[in-house]
Amino acid sequence: MLAKKLSASEVTDPALYFNRRNFIRAGILAASAVATGAVYRRLNPAGGGEVNTPLIQGVTVPAPATDPSGFRAADRQTSLQDITHYNNFYEFSTDKASVAPLAANFNTTGWRVSVEGLVKMPRVFELDDLLKLSPPEERIYRMRCVEGWSMVIPWVGYSLSKLLDAVEPLEEAKYVAFETLLDPKRMPEQSAGVLQWPYVEGLRLDEARHPLTLLATGLYGRALPPQDGAPIRLVVPWKYGFKGIKSIVKISLVASQPRTTWNSEAPREYGFYANVNPHVDHPRWSQATEQRIGEFGRRPTLMFNGYEEQVGHLYAGMDLRTNF
């Protein structure tokens, strides 16, 4: 088909076509879209920041990946970016992406940890003394959140048992209770009543003494960034992530099972034990599978998060449906 030739006179005068009204309208349209976009960006901040906490000197690698200790998971490690920008740390924000920016200026100078209760040698540790108690080890653990996602994190720290040995628990001590800092000035969301503050957690003494139970002071070879629980936190890899209490200021040995935050918040949904268990669903969602951060699709969740060989004996004879 032949295109009909247009004569110059048929073409609309550009002055008419691009008239003032159209200009203004295009401007309004663009400006409004930019404004809407800005609102969206404010609600959904994109991207992340740097992690520049100091490197930890003298980190030892305790075992090969094939070691039965479970100290070094062979899974692909989650990126530092994801570990430090997807955090459940309600003391700063209930939005996982917002924790990192809100915690960025968290000041930990002069940090002390009181270890007390049923022990022979109660002591208030200066952070530096606590860090020097045992050489830092790299432990690569799977971390399974009760919400259904998981990561693989190269922690730095040492077994909690080293600290317990140093304070010598008494015969009557059966449980260990942990407490996070309570300071709404430094942890702004503690002013909101989302949870009962301070955050508290607990373990049975034999769980606390298990070599896998880690007092973590760093990750990826660096001191813990604030959003991951600086300066010192608990990591219990066979339990749901909320057992890993952050920014600890108090550890007490006690005779009876201590109150724990999520359990007292919703006893039907979060048990004291909170062992990772694909066969016992959360009342509102399935625990059979998990979203591994950085992977596409879901993968099956393993019993005790894959640490059954190491910790299964701790729960021999227990009904894990009632003791969830």
Binding site: N44, A46, G47, G48, T78, Q81, D82, H85, Y86, K96, A97, W149, Q291, I293, G294
Partner: peptide
């Protein structure tokens, strides 16, 4: 790739 660590959930 700017949807954060858990893009599907986001």
């Amino acid at each position: 790739h700017q949807l954060g660590a858990n893009p599907v959930k986001f």
